[in-house]
Simulated assay, not measured.
Amino acid sequence: MQLTSPQPARHPNPTTRATGLAYLIFERPSLIEAAEFLTDFGLRFVSRRKNLVFFRGTEASPFCYVVRRGGRARFAGLGLRVETVAELKALQNVAGASRAEPCSWPGGGWRVHLTDPSGFQVDVIQGQDAVEEINHRPILPVNAPADVHRINKTQRAPLCAPEVIKLGHVVLELANFQATCAWYTQHFGFIPSDVQVLPDGSPAAVFMRLDLGDKPADHHTLALAQGIAPAYSHSAYELVDADAVGMGERVLREHRREHAWGIGRHILGSQIFDYWNDPWGDKHEHYCDGDLFTADVPMGVHEASREAMSQWGQVMPASFTRPKLGLSTVAAVVRGLRESPDLSVAKLRALHKVFG
């Protein structure tokens, strides 16, 4: 399978090399409903400031999830970390960027606001203070036929919401795939780990990791998928082990939350996963046991299909990628066909054939 489009590809001299996905921002009409779901899901309340609520995992980041009161539910943007002041200053020269300003959110630091070619808000933060890690339960010992760790002991995972350790990745759909992918590789040094392609060789989705050199990085921190319009697909949150993923499913079902897909194991990234919809239908993923790559591993190219999304478990349901029906969807298709060089009637047919 050949990739015919110029993106995804590494940039030889990126403006910066992002070191982490700092946070996601969502607007919600009800902060209470949002907090109830996120608590059931396993995130921890940090603080509330007027119309903002902050949540965190157990790692040393002061927060990873922001809920802002808004008239309608929507994904508002993401935050990336850079290491140096020089990198933050360099980003001020990107078209449409703000000047660096102090960040008043937990952890402080300095921040530059940007907008990617698909219209997503991207905050870049530097100098944020770490906080003390929260102890989470250890990995439960597993007995294998030739590797026994438990004798005269039982296996009992705690019956409670799973402990989210960190925000792992975010997946965005977009009409302008080439320009948006190039923007992230050029300005933040993202490395394409794997790309899934349509029968004509054009990219359907790319999974990109941080360039941390010899330090292993998650298989993907940002994934971009060809779609009909800019849209949030899902975000993913790491748990300690498969028992935590399974307990998360039990707790969320008992709280009558809406299940989206899982449990299974992905092919690209290898994570054991389970997806849940929040009260506004936005997908949130529990995962554990993901792949880690250093910067020298080359990109893989794979045929796109629903079957290619998991090794075992339920095949990805067609509903997982189906856009919401309505006049706004029709308008988005028309606008995308008119304005995006990456979208065509043939591309829409191919996406529908592959993903249903």
Rank of each mutant, 00 (worst) to 15 (best):
L31P: 01
H113W: 03
F55S: 03
L43M: 09
D200I: 02
A332Y: 14
Q311H: 01
K50V: 12
R306E: 09
E87W: 06
G107I: 05
Y287M: 14
V67D: 13
V85I: 12
A204K: 11
G168E: 09
T58Y: 00
P158W: 11
A175M: 07
E303F: 08
R349W: 10
P8V: 10
A35D: 12
A86I: 10
L198Y: 05
L351E: 14
V195N: 02
P162Y: 12
F207W: 08
R150K: 01
F177W: 15
V345I: 14
D123T: 03
N143T: 14
A331Q: 05
A22M: 07
G70C: 01
E249D: 14
V82S: 07
H136R: 08
T84S: 07
N143L: 13
S61H: 11
K353S: 08
Q128L: 15
V333N: 15
F54G: 09
L222G: 10
A22V: 05
T15N: 10
L174H: 01
R250T: 10
A146K: 11
N143E: 06
L252Y: 06
D291N: 15
V301H: 00
G201W: 05
M316P: 15
G127R: 00
S233W: 09
V301I: 13
G290S: 03
V112Q: 09
A34Y: 10
R253P: 04
L91S: 00
I151T: 15
S118M: 01
K166L: 01
A244W: 15
V171A: 01
F45D: 07
R17S: 01
R10W: 06
L24T: 03
L88R: 02
K89E: 01
D274W: 08
G356I: 03
S233R: 11
S5P: 00
F355Y: 07
G57C: 06
A332M: 05
W110Y: 04
L43P: 00
D289L: 04
M299H: 09
R322L: 14
R137P: 06
V67M: 04
T221H: 13
V112L: 08
T221W: 12
D123K: 12
L351T: 13
L252P: 02
L114N: 02
G213R: 08
I263F: 05
P279H: 10
V112Y: 08
E254N: 10
Q196C: 06
R349D: 13
S104L: 11
F63C: 01
